[in-house]
């Protein structure tokens, strides 16, 4: 129906956009190959398992962030909410309430998520401010409850369940990650809920016109993200056997980085768990590889900062090309 030359032009533009977006992956491939060549430790099979263990927390946080970003919003409270959930779970465990600590931890996370959702929907606060407020309160709560100390707890079953146990050679933390990826992937790709999430993220106004429950979706997504942060908090404390107020500090940034690196666009409507898994692996491999090369945590932060800005810029550029 469009003229053939216009169609060719459009295709050429799309191709240019594709090349622009794939630049990051090319850079990443170069990084992996370089790491593998430089470092025998990096390419050992043990190290792969190692990377899998390291990415559990990031992976779960990133899949929550994926939902939030597909919705067209952002969640800056991720790290603080995970920390405070871990701290409260640890306190509950040390108070001796046993398995009841698990729902407590989840409820703390979900509660903060619900707060985010309610603020965004009913007070009409932009999500970055609403979640900044939660960040503030959660961080303060974590610091106050711990009074700067490390909270110790003795609960071997808990630790086995959430992190240190192993099934078929996989750590239980990794199993949780797989479960969450599975759950979130299923929700997103295979359910009406997921279909409506994409629709709402693509255009809230259109989705409203089509009769979809936009407000309810926002509240549900933020609450779900919060509950997953509760899980992250528990894995966090189970792994090291104690809880600290700054346990998951900066996690939101790594999660945003992983989602964005995976190729999910800010602004909503696009993205998938599969992409996020790729993004999480990128960050995981990068952290691991750089650590093996003795590049410290802080340099990694710089690299991630540059990467996020670069990827978002390239993505924006590519989309401008597509929209001509």
């Amino acid at each position: 129906m469009t003229s053939p030359t216009a169609e060719l032009e459009r295709r050429a533009r799309l191709r240019r956009a594709m090349i622009a977006t794939s630049g990051i992956y090319i850079a990443f491939a170069v990084l992996v190959v370089a790491l593998a060549m430089i470092s025998p430790a990096f390419r050992s099979p043990d190290n792969l398992v190692n990377i899998g263990r390291q990415v559990a927390i990031l992976g779960i946080a990133s899949s929550a962030m994926t939902f939030v970003i597909i919705l067209g919003e952002i969640d800056l409270s991720v790290g603080a909410v995970a920390s405070v959930s871990g701290v409260i779970t640890a306190l509950a465990l040390s108070a001796g309430i046993g398995p009841l600590a698990i729902p407590v931890g989840l409820a703390v996370g979900a509660g903060f998520g619900l707060l985010n959702g309610l603020l965004i929907v009913y007070v009409a606060v932009p999500s970055f401010i609403a979640t900044l407020v939660s960040f503030f309160i959660a961080q303060g709560l974590a610091l106050t409850l711990t009074t700067g100390q490390t909270i110790l707890f003795a609960a071997d079953g808990f630790r086995l369940l959430f992190a240190t146990g192993s099934v078929l050679g996989f750590s239980s933390a990794f199993i949780w990650l797989v479960l969450v990826f599975g759950l979130m992937g299923w929700l997103l790709a295979r359910t009406r809920f997921g279909a409506h999430l994409y629709a709402i993220g693509g255009s809230q106004d259109n989705a409203r016109m089509l009769g979809l429950a936009v407000d309810r979706m926002k509240i549900v997504i933020f609450t779900l993200a919060g509950a997953l942060m509760g899980l992250v908090g528990m894995i966090l404390i189970a792994r090291i056997g104690n809880a600290r107020a700054d346990g998951a500090i900066g996690l939101e940034f790594d999660a945003i980085a992983a989602v964005v690196l995976g190729g999910t666009a800010l602004g909503g409507g696009y993205g998938s768990i599969l992409r996020t898994i790729v993004g999480v692996m990128l960050i995981g491999v990068m952290n691991n590889g750089l650590a093996i090369l003795n590049v410290d945590f802080n340099t990694q932060q710089i690299i991630k900062g540059v990467l996020v800005i670069a990827v978002v810029l390239v993505d924006r550029w590519a989309r401008n090309i597509k929209m001509n």
Partner: peptide, 9 residues
């Protein structure tokens, strides 16, 4: 008249 197609689907 204003289209409500979901561009991303």
């Amino acid at each position: 008249q204003e289209l409500t197609v979901l561009e991303n689907r």
